[in-house]
Design a protein around this nucleic acid. Structure first.
Lengths: 341, 341
DNA sequence: TCGGTTTCGTTAATCGTTTTCCTAAATCGA
DNA sequence: TCGATTTAGGAAAACGATTAACGAAACCGA
């Protein structure tokens, strides 16, 4: 910047104003002269210095539990798109669903003076753990999950209703022995799905046989294990509902390894629609979460907060997940194969 | 920081030293007193200011063409893991394979004073376009692709050999009419795969029938279109090799819609292995790229450059992609179904 | 002609750290 | 006991922008 000033014989103030396009900053000729010098010298402003003085970095942090999961991948894309086109940069970090790491990453971001943080909460059941982060002046939006007790913007999906709807659909096909592969209990979004399933089953059948509810951990291996256990039971379920995409894949693997065919031996339905579900043989029935829109919505919310002077009170924004019926679900067959052992 | 200084009656210098764990910075008691005050006041250092003074931000940029693609998702995870555990933060940006945007994003990152940039080049055929970025003091590593003429660290995969090997495998099964769904010609990685295919075919059959080579664009839609065109031909190929994951999915869709079955009517093989290929019906033969390792390797390379005083000359690091044979490839059947039209 | 706006520009303080150069006391070897 | 070294700590100058406060022309209407 000093070089530009020297070369053009103009003060740094004026240069700064020209770069930031302050109206009436300089005469036409000066602007041209400065722009030319900037170009010739290949000068570009040091945003670190600018950020320091401005006390805003035009950077937004995003902390996720598992950036490898394509569902989150799509969500990240939605966030990135809005963040970038709004003039911000994105700092991304992966917590591996580790509460302590998640906390440290958030603190690191605060230290880096991000203007806002988007957090996909790993699964703290209480808001207390987030207090040190929420106490700062930084804006926070929870994404894909919310934390009860925290009065914070959250963008989620109607997990309970969508899950219940999916289970009701299986019931409507005539299934009675419907198994559920649940996610971690301490994550609200996951818990809501479990509740939706349980709700539908109890409504229909009065109570739920405990052996039909397996607890996985949102991984392929977990899904496989749960499904394998279900297939060990003397009478295997006629339908299975997996509570996220990776567990669905695991369950599919276990079904395949058991030599069962879908949907004649067992129906399967997954939470999260994946791009390849429609071309799978058979194509897979799933609850489609609008991952991209979730990301966009959360990012828009945070940008709104950064731009507006007036701060509306925090809101829980609920997007709709909807059931997509394909070929992996069918009425139960009276005479099914037993799994090959 | 001033508050801490005031509270403890110690200078900012000492506090800074304690925070940065400079050896012999202060006596035990002083350290304790300061740490206590820091904790009580909830002070955390402003990394923007620190970065300004240090002239290093401990931040690394990553520019990708399509962060939604699960292949890149896994690569990002590899990068993130190494970057984070090495004490850096990651700024992520998506260029949508747009050359101009890619350039702007890189400049923005330079402006933000990232210590290094990892770029998955969108497909510039020449190094000239990268010159303004490479001229700076910042370290650059190309990832997943390299740019001829640029003397820059690059982490890639043996695209040519892996592609040739895959094609040779199809030939060894007895296929003669093997189609290839190619990616963009201006991206070297993609071009190498095309060359590998063409090389294998010419080596075996002398020449390549041009109608067997379709050019897609690395999207599902492109893969579908190419496959549909191939199925329009009077004599359809007995095997098809798609040059990336999304085009493979598109091709699968077209095959499904044509009512053909795999592998009896047509064999299919894809570049990029996906986590669900093994549970697909039939499981899919694919060339497995070590996406996670690619990301890790590139990140490690850049961290090495940031840490070492000595700078070794730029290197092209080639990881091995390997063919995984599954059920979607089989010898050609003499009497095949024609596609339903 | 004169006060009041614009217009174009400058000077200098400031953001919150790190780091260079000091100093004073304590320790130490001979 | 004396010089040399080590240890503990401080004062103040950066880092490279932004911005408040101010000033000199130039313009303008009455």
């Amino acid at each position: 910047m000093n070089d530009v000033a020297e070369k053009t014989g103009v003060s740094k103030t004026t240069i700064s104003r020209i770069i930031n396009q302050i109206p009436n900053a300089a005469s036409k000729e000066t602007v041209e002269r400065v722009l030319k010098a900037i170009d010739e010298l290949g000068y570009y402003p040091n945003q670190v210095a600018a950020s320091l003085k401005r006390t805003t970095t035009r950077t937004i942090g995003l902390v996720m539990g598992d950036i490898e999961n394509p569902f989150f991948g799509l969500m990240i894309k939605g966030v990135e798109e809005v963040v970038r086109s709004s003039g911000y940069s994105l700092i991304l970090a992966n917590s591996n669903y580790d509460d302590a790491l998640e906390h440290d990453l958030c603190m690191l971001m605060l230290s880096k003076q991000v203007d806002a943080i988007l957090i996909a909460p790993s699964g703290f059941s209480s808001c207390k753990q987030y207090a040190p982060i929420l106490d700062r002046q930084t804006h926070v939006v929870f994404i894909d999950n919310y934390v009860p007790g925290c009065n914070v913007d959250s963008v989620i999906v109607n997990n309970y209703e969508a899950s219940k709807e999916a289970c009701d659909y299986l019931i409507s096909l005539g299934h009675k022995k419907i198994a559920f592969i649940a996610g971690p209990a301490n994550r609200i979004s996951s818990d809501q799905r479990t509740k939706g399933f349980v709700g539908a089953m109890e409504e229909e059948f009065g109570s739920l046989e405990p052996s039909l509810l397996k607890r996985g951990d949102h991984t392929i291996a977990g899904g496989y294990r749960c499904m394998a256990e279900l297939l060990q039971q003397p009478e295997i379920p006629t339908a299975v509902f997996a509570s996220n995409n990776l567990m669905t894949v695991g369950a599919l693997g276990a079904i395949k390894d058991a030599g069962l065919s879908i949907p004649s031996d067992i129906s399967i339905l997954g939470f999260d629609d994946m791009y390849w579900y429609s071309i799978n043989q058979p194509s897979l029935t799933a609850v489609d979460q609008p991952a991209y829109e979730i990301g966009q919505t959360a990012a828009k919310r945070v940008v709104m907060r950064l731009r507006n002077k007036k701060q509306p009170s925090p809101e829980v924004i609920e997007l709709k997940a909807k059931l997509i019926v394909r070929d992996s679900t069918a009425p139960p067959q009276p005479h099914r194969n037993a799994p090959k052992t």
